[in-house]
Design a protein around this nucleic acid. Structure first.
Length: 421
RNA sequence: GCAGAGGUAGCUAAGCUUGGCCUACGGCGCCGGACUUGAAAUCCGGUGGGCAUUCGCCCUCGGGGGUUCGAAUCCCCUCCUCUGCGCCA
């Protein structure tokens, strides 16, 4: 959510930002409602002031007739107020509703561009593997080793669900522990959050009201299945004023992630894009002056997982047209897939500036006597577990159909070196 | 799920029975000032949000309605916390 004064005073900048992002929001409606709201509020405040004065007079007035006269005046004021009050509430609601649909301002570092083709590669690590045989897809590998069962996932739940079995299931568990141990070393506090959250939390991080269609919702309880642990973790401190000395707050959490993923995606077969996947998420709540450095740390810390798994990857920065709604700046980490001969996104690390903090009312004080200010929030995958598994299967496959395990992961697999049937 | 007790400012905590003296008591923390060589102690003032920024005005007692000239206070709905019972891995 943008600062309301900023929108008022920088209408053109907001308009340009929307165009750069290829986003739409009813800015005219916002401005109209805001102007009208403020106009009415002034009159309402005047009337309320009069009411307060007269009410005070009634309480001290001894003369019965004078009292009655004032009570009559109050009744008149109330009639007038009722109408204006109604309109002011309607205008305020409209204004706020629209404000929730205006995306964040991109950071100045963010390159211009209308879609993902304009994203810029920042750095590359490791040499993409060239296998001496024809590589197979993770779906092939998974089914022939009987560790990924897509058919039965569909039977049990439907299309877009899969089942991990045997070493596949153990690999999931190993990756989770492997990742979280690394992040603990790096100073991220472990949290095990709820997988269901209320709508206030979803508004706080920006999933609602705009992306209702992307979420699973339980109408009976008005709860949502989390699309990422970002939601419960960032909302841990919703409506709180934190002590500046406690910053930054760095959390990591595992959670299942649920996404409806309505619509078709080509080139994302197998378990690349599914309705439920596991992810370790890093969330930082930090001082506004520290968020730029914090995004670098967060991204580096996520990269460390790929380095230890010895998976070649690159870091890209998303252009304005590809940037997500709440983000000010996003790095994606992509692992090379020798089968597809392309890069696969396994992490997305974003800085939100004060956009989420303003929605979720996460504040801090520099000193106890100073006014509270909004914090900055950041988060990133550290990493998406399902896609990391895909990357391991496709990068570490052997010609005979077996899959070697990255050396540092073996202790987490009870010493297993190679996955075979 | 049922019954009871609660939710008041950064924290703590009065007020609610009996509506107006609430411009929300007091304390802690913090800031500024006075005093002091300095500090402590003491005293004075400040310490939520919005609109205007010159004096000012409005809002704020978990949230939303209602009654009333007037609601922290009375009524209704709702959310959350705690205790007991029920259910349960």
């Amino acid at each position: 959510m943008l600062d309301i004064k900023f929108i008022r005073e920088n209408e053109n900048a907001v308009r340009k930002m929307l165009a750069d992002r290829k986003a739409e929001a009813d800015l005219d409606g916002f401005i109209e409602a805001d102007c009208r709201f403020r106009e009415i509020v002034e009159r309402v405040n005047g009337l309320k002031h009069e009411k307060n004065v007269v009410s005070k007079e009634i309480s001290t007035e001894k003369d019965r007739a004078a009292r009655q006269e004032r009570i009559g005046r109050m009744k008149g004021l109330n009639v007038e107020l009722r109408e204006l009050d109604e309109e002011s509430k309607a205008m305020e609601a409209k204004r706020n509703e629209i404000r929730l649909t205006i995306p964040n301002f991109p950071h100045p570092d963010v390159p211009v561009g209308e879609d993902e083709s304009k994203n810029v590669t920042i750095s590359t690590w490791g040499d993409p593997r060239k296998l001496k045989f024809t590589p197979r897809a993770h779906t092939d590998i998974g089914s022939s080793l009987d560790i990924i069962d897509i058919e039965r996932g569909a039977k049990v739940s439907g299309s877009g669900f899969y089942v991990l079995k045997g070493y596949g299931a153990r690999l999931e568990r190993a990756l989770l522990n492997f990742m979280m141990d690394i992040h603990s070393e790096q100073g991220w506090k472990e949290v095990w959050p709820p997988a269901l959250v209320n709508s206030a939390s979803m508004v706080g991080t920006g999933q609602l009201p705009k992306f209702e269609e992307d979420m699973y919702r339980l109408p009976k309880d008005d709860l949502y299945l989390v699309p990422t642990a970002e939601v419960p973790i960032t909302n841990l401190h919703r409506d709180e004023i934190l002590d500046g000395d406690d910053l930054p707050l760095r959390y990591q959490a595992f959670s299942p992630c649920f996404r409806r993923e309505a619509g078709r995606h080509t080139g994302e077969e197998g378990i690349i894009r599914v309705h439920q996947f596991s992810k370790v998420e890093l969330v930082s709540i930090c001082h506004p002056d520290a968020s730029e450095d914090e995004l670098e740390k967060l991204t580096r810390d996520a990269e460390e997982v790929l380095k230890r798994l010895d998976l070649p990857y690159r870091r890209i920065i998303l252009c304005k047209g590809d940037l997500s709604f709440s983000s000010a700046k996003t790095y994606d980490l992509e692992v090379y897939s020798p089968f597809e001969e392309r890069w696969l996104e396994v992490s997305s690390c974003s800085s939100f500036g004060d956009f989420q903090a303003r929605r979720a009312m996460i504040k801090f004080r520099r000193k106890p006597h100073l006014p509270s200010e909004f914090l900055h929030t950041l988060n990133g995958s550290g990493l998406a577990i399902g896609r990391t598994m895909v990357a391991i299967l496709e990068n570490y496959q052997l010609e005979d159909g077996r899959v070697e395990l990255p050396k540092k992961l073996r202790p987490y697999m009870r010493g297993l070196e190679v996955i075979s049937i």
